[in-house]
Computed example of a mutant assay.
Amino acid sequence: MKAARTRQFIIEKTAPLFNTKGFDGTSLSDMEQATKLTKGSIYGNFRDKEEIASEAFKFSMEKVRELARSKVDAAITNKEQLVALLGFYASYVFDPPIKGGCPLLNTAIEADDHRKGMRRVVVKELTNTIDFIAGLLTKGIKAKEFKRDVDARSLAYTFFCAVEGAVIFSRVERSREPMDIVVAHCKDVLDKIST
């Protein structure tokens, strides 16, 4: 039981490090400082740094999903749920659940460039997000909230990729403007496809 708690503690304390500094930028010294544990205590609970980073990413994504789900679940209609999801991402730009911004975006960049072992995990998260958005759109079509000819999957990709692009731009520019423009556009699209 104590080992499981220690393992979880390490994951929670190192998640912001990996999300802020990346895999290569996060040193053992950083992990020791964040956890106040020794090298032996850290690596006594994990095979290697790769496992810690992988578990930290999964923890980060679970936090993001929980917060997003709480916003979506508070809305009633499928359209309101999509608007709530957009609102979550808009607030997420400068107040992310995990320090360092979007863990999916940050890890995807590393997985594409050199952490190829993480690629499968990241692709699964990306696909799950697209499926979730497409599911809300599909339910909205079935509930006659949206027009029947809406291609839910294509629109889900469009919304998600636009929002993630806005996350990058807004964080680097330190401006809400890109995200505000993208969210407004997505809301306008939802209004246009509404019945």
Rank of each mutant, 00 (worst) to 15 (best):
H114Y: 10
K63D: 05
P97W: 06
M179R: 08
R5T: 13
M118F: 14
F23S: 03
E55C: 14
N106S: 04
S194C: 02
I10R: 02
F160H: 08
K2I: 10
L136V: 00
A75M: 06
N106P: 00
D73A: 00
I141E: 08
A143W: 09
G165H: 07
I10N: 03
F169D: 12
S154M: 15
F88C: 05
I168S: 07
I168L: 08
L190G: 01
E32Q: 15
I133A: 03
M179A: 10
C161E: 14
K192T: 14
F132E: 10
K39N: 10
I130L: 15
Q81G: 03
S27Y: 13
G117S: 14
F23Q: 03
P103E: 01
K144I: 15
A166Y: 05
T107W: 01
K36A: 15
E173I: 13
G135W: 05
I11Q: 11
D112K: 04
C186M: 06
K58R: 15
A166I: 03
I11D: 08
S170Y: 11
P103F: 01
I98Q: 00
G165V: 05
L86A: 09
E62K: 14
D131Q: 13
T35A: 01
F46S: 10
F160P: 00
S29F: 09
S175R: 11
E125L: 06
A34F: 02
V163D: 07
V172N: 13
K79F: 02
S91K: 12
S54F: 07
T158V: 05
I109C: 03
Y43D: 10
V72Y: 04
E164P: 00
F57D: 07
Y92C: 00
N45M: 15
T35Y: 00
L105R: 13
D95C: 06
S70E: 07
L17N: 08
G140W: 03
S54V: 04
R5S: 12
L86D: 07
R65E: 10
A74P: 00
F132C: 04
R7F: 15
G100I: 03
V83K: 08
A152R: 04
C186A: 10
